[in-house]
Simulated assay, not measured.
Amino acid sequence: MMIAAYISGSLSGALIVSKLMHLRNPSDYGSHNPGATNMLRVNGKFPALCVLIFDMLKGLLPVYLSYRLNISPFFLGIIAIAACLGHIFPCFFRFQGGKGVATALGSMVMIGFDFSGLFIATWLITIVITGYSSVAAIISFLLAPLFVWFIRPELTMPVAMLSCLIIIRHASNIGRLIKGEEPKILNRNKKSKININY
């Protein structure tokens, strides 16, 4: 299941959606990140939503199948990490992938709707306040282990491991934030219009 999760994670939603819709490949534009955020900047809202759903499913499906096979909670976390590693270091694309946020969220949906609701609410509130997708992801994953500790404490360790992976993956974003060079996805000074000119 770990191998299957990694292969599932290695599928690029951004590339598949851009090919099917005859759009620009986000890996060649914007931040060059093959994820939903850069897809939004490059090709707009609907293609970005399709990528978001695709990337969530490739994390959700391996974890769900593993859950049905009665695999222990700790190894469910390892399988989730394998799916995220596939997205971050895809074997099909020279090991150059995205940040893994959507795939990680998809893999954690099995924890429950209460956890998913808290996580998504945290992400939305942070992005509305700051305008930065990266800040929203970092804060959401920082709080994820705390949320899961109150809901399903036996999953705290695997969720913490997954959160560490995603936060480490955002090291370059943290550097740009410190320098004031990180682009915003939501520009509150322009009546909250999405900025896709980056």
Rank of each mutant, 00 (worst) to 15 (best):
M2C: 13
A4Q: 10
I7V: 13
S8L: 13
G13H: 09
A14M: 07
I16Q: 09
K19H: 11
M21H: 07
R24V: 13
D28N: 14
Y29L: 06
A36S: 08
F46N: 06
C50K: 04
V51S: 03
I53D: 08
F54G: 04
F54V: 05
D55H: 09
L60R: 01
L61Y: 14
P62S: 09
P62F: 10
L65Y: 10
S66K: 01
S66G: 11
S72N: 09
I79C: 03
I81W: 06
A83G: 02
L85M: 03
H87T: 02
F92K: 05
F95L: 12
F95S: 11
A104P: 00
G106F: 09
G106A: 06
G106M: 06
V109R: 03
V109P: 09
M110N: 10
T122S: 10
W123D: 04
T126K: 05
G131E: 00
Y132L: 04
A137R: 09
I138V: 05
L143E: 09
L146Q: 03
F147T: 03
L155P: 00
I168T: 13
H170I: 01
A171T: 15
S172W: 14
N173V: 08
R176K: 12
L177A: 01
E182R: 00
N187T: 02
N197K: 15
N197F: 12
